[in-house]
């Protein structure tokens, strides 16, 4: 089976959020819903020396959508079987007609991917722009990235293209769901589970 996934280079990402807005625009999401979210993770501290200040600060952005996990928890908890992992490409897709909006998937997903659509009264989530890729394109977030920091494709190919992927904070332990998200990070990135920093924009993600 082919498995599709995302790649993000956090060293190139400037946190511009074009990915987030282009997705919102294409999927016409209301305020409060974001299939793609950009985490701002930062930490460190300041020390005063007389009138001067010495800093040890780090900060970076991580753009995350649905990671179309190899072992997705959302499909496991979805009683009406509205969420299914496709056999042909590994994308986790929602069948809206079956969704009862019980929110179990939203509670289970450690990435916050399934979200409640207030207008439709249904859960909604990233579908990897399945109709765009069927036409030979890329997901809109990838194509709109101003810094070319995002990529999408077969995860095995991505791993060859971008070796030495990392699992970084504030993302959860990858062993939970085996996300198909490959991360290349800058020198300031912290490993997952890091407690030295915190998400700086909790309202936005």
């Amino acid at each position: 089976m082919k498995q599709l996934g995302f790649f993000i280079d956090t060293n190139k990402c400037t946190g511009c959020k074009t990915c987030q807005i282009s997705c919102k625009d294409l999927k016409d999401q209301p305020v409060g819903m974001n299939f793609r979210r950009v985490y701002e993770y930062a930490g460190g501290g300041w020390r005063q020396e007389g009138k001067a200040w010495r800093q040890q600060i780090f900060a970076y952005y991580v753009s995350v959508a649905c990671n179309h996990c190899t072992d997705p928890v959302c499909t496991k908890v979805c009683e009406p079987k509205a969420l299914m992992k496709r056999e042909d490409n590994g994308l986790v897709i929602l069948d809206e007609s079956k969704c009862t909006a019980c929110m179990a998937c939203a509670k289970a997903c450690p990435y916050g991917a399934p979200q409640f659509n207030e207008v439709k009264k249904k859960m909604n989530k990233c579908d990897g722009c399945i109709d765009r890729i069927a036409r030979g394109g890329q997901p809109v977030c990838v194509e709109s990235c101003t810094q070319r920091a995002l990529d999408f494709g077969e995860i095995d190919m991505l791993k060859k293209k971008y070796p030495n992927g990392q699992h970084i904070a504030p993302l959860p332990d990858p062993s939970w769901t085996q996300p198909n998200l490959l991360v290349r990070s800058g020198r300031t990135a912290r490993p997952f589970g890091d407690e030295k920093g915190s998400v700086q924009n909790p309202k936005e993600v």
Partner: peptide, 15 residues
């Protein structure tokens, strides 16, 4: 400010 131009791309930030 530790601006979005930095974020680890700089060698050194001097506030």
């Amino acid at each position: 400010r530790y601006s979005d131009t930095m974020l680890g791309k700089e060698s050194e930030w001097v506030p």
